[in-house]
Design a protein around this nucleic acid. Structure first.
Lengths: 333, 333
DNA sequence: CTGAAAGCGCTTACAG
DNA sequence: CTGAAAGCGCTTACAG
């Protein structure tokens, strides 16, 4: 419960001196500082962040704003992994990061800049944003540093941490073909998601790499919906048997798992009669047999890099820019 | 960027009046209030929380402190589900909750009361705490409302949201027996976890319910470790074949999944040759075939109820107490 | 190297 | 019903 004043009195110095000592200013005599430190420690003194925020200009408060916690969205590992990544960055750095849930509704009611002012934030990480969310547009013209995880942010203060979806999807498609399955079926995500377009573009590059013509490939539009993927893949196989597409290249792991299930439910063997590949690298795949090949996006690393970039931007050590976190191909069996 | 002063000037009233109008005090003339509201809206005014925290006594700032985000812990769904629950409570309530990651190390460095003072918190939800964490002890003597999710908090300000582990485990054990498998093998969690003891006690009640003697039951100490569970269950079956324990009653879903895998790897059929049951209700089970019976703990609900209880305690509408969130038996196939 | 003083943006008795 | 003023706990020029 100690305030700076109590520390000052106990140390027999002024409040200003305590403040300077505690904040690591150099113009404090060493023994004065020592005494102040000791007393602060003893009293369990902690500066009130509210008071500090109110009086100080140069502050380094950051927060992560998480969208999509709303109750209709399925809980996935994304949030936990991002948090874990942020956390690993601040470990031992004597800093703390606040997290706030932001719904699309809330974004409509309160501008990001107002939010940051209200909570004294000097920079934010944004996770879970969807194309069309109000903040995406606002960030183009804001002057507070923003780092988007898995979402491209524009404007002079907009930075991003992304997977190179084009390269990654090209890679896994090539992997599929190398495994001897060149009659491809693309199990596609929803068009509203930017990643769908990027992965699609990577897919086409892989076709070109292998001299496969676009129109020899079937596309199942499954909108990242596992039930839809199950149905469409099942129907596809029932119709063509093993005579047409034999490789289901999926834009997400969950769709891949559904596709694999469809294959098995029809009495075929995954990775033998038909190959399936995913994208994301979710935990679930570790429990599915046979193992489905995928691209691990390394979300934890994204959290870490996002945090690191944000701090560097705030301190002026770096400029807002786009970082690509290296993905990893995980082979199937 | 507007401050209360600018609103006051624009409205032609004093700062005090603006403050009272915005905070819903009744002693403001209706048209004055209306004008102030309009102008505040127009200017995009938001009160600085820092200033408010500093000047006001009766504040209702709450936060969730999450332990176990440390990088060595596996990411699971727990955190995301709790957050989702909290979030569903505050939906539309015009409030926001801050989240902070707290490691055991940090707990050792900074007392909870100091933390709350530093961040102007009037109440906290604690999630992911382990037996032996420093804050558990401190809470016994603190005077700030604390709600523990899945951890029993003591002291006059300690509240808890729990599963009735004893009843739940008794229930699933009884379910197993009803399914015709009475030669039980308990796949046990680690002794350092309080839930292990409670589930064990529920297990024994079920034995008594069915007149089964304790020493006819084998216990595999697997410490909530899936690899250990896999090994021990496999060794057990290799040794006894189908001649002894036939029902692996597991204290967690992950151990149950491992047990099921061991069974299948030995060429047996899950839920036919041997039955397996879990505990938790994790998403993964929806993807494992055949479906393993389990107890769904409803973590989302726990988050919701925890938040609700905390707010009620802060407002004086309720006393710190223990809430049990109803679990649900999910049958296997 | 140190202290007195102003000020950050609010809330809240108090007076009228 | 409204306003002037004190105060919350800090930081930061400024003076010495």
């Amino acid at each position: 419960m100690a305030s700076i004043k109590e520390v000052a009195v106990a140390a027999g110095v002024s409040v200003s001196t305590v403040s300077r000592a505690l904040n690591g200013y150099t113009d404090v005599r060493e023994d004065t500082r020592k005494k102040i430190m000791d007393i602060a420690q003893e009293l369990g003194y902690r500066p009130s962040q509210s008071a500090r925020n109110l009086s100080s200009k140069r502050k380094e408060n950051v927060a992560i704003l998480i969208s999509g916690l709303g109750s209709n969205s399925p809980v996935d590992e994304f949030t936990g992994n991002v948090l874990k990544g942020l956390n690993s960055y601040i470990q031992g750095k004597n800093m703390i990061i606040a997290m706030y849930g932001i719904s699309s509704e809330m974004q409509a009611n309160q501008k990001l800049s107002e939010f940051c002012r209200e909570y004294s934030l000097s920079g934010v990480i944004l996770a879970g944003l969807k194309l069309g969310d109000p903040y995406i547009e606002e960030i183009k013209h804001t002057d507070i540093p923003c780092v988007g995880i898995d979402i491209k942010l524009e404007g002079k203060m907009g930075a991003s941490v992304l997977t190179n979806d084009i390269e990654a999807f090209r890679e896994i498609t090539n992997y599929t073909i190398e495994k001897g399955f060149s009659q491809l079926v693309l199990v596609k995500g929803k068009n509203e998601a930017s990643v769908t377009h990027e992965r699609y573009s990577g897919f086409k590059k892989a076709l070109k790499d292998n001299g496969i013509s676009d129109n020899s490939v079937d596309v199942l539009d499954c909108r990242f919906d596992e039930n839809l993927a199950y149905k469409k893949v099942k129907a596809y196989i029932e119709k063509h048997k093993k005579n047409k597409g034999r490789a289901f290249v999926c834009m997400s792991d969950l769709m891949a798992v559904a596709a694999a299930k469809a294959i098995e439910d029809l009495g075929y063997s995954v990775n033998v009669d038909f190959i399936v590949t995913g994208f994301d690298g979710i935990q679930l795949l570790n429990y599915i047999r046979p193992r489905i090949a995928t691209i691990d996006q390394n979300i934890v690393k994204k959290g870490y890099e996002g945090m690191r970039l944000l701090m560097r931007i705030i301190k002026g050590e770096d400029k807002p820019r786009t970082i690509y976190v290296k993905h990893k191909l995980i082979e199937g069996e």
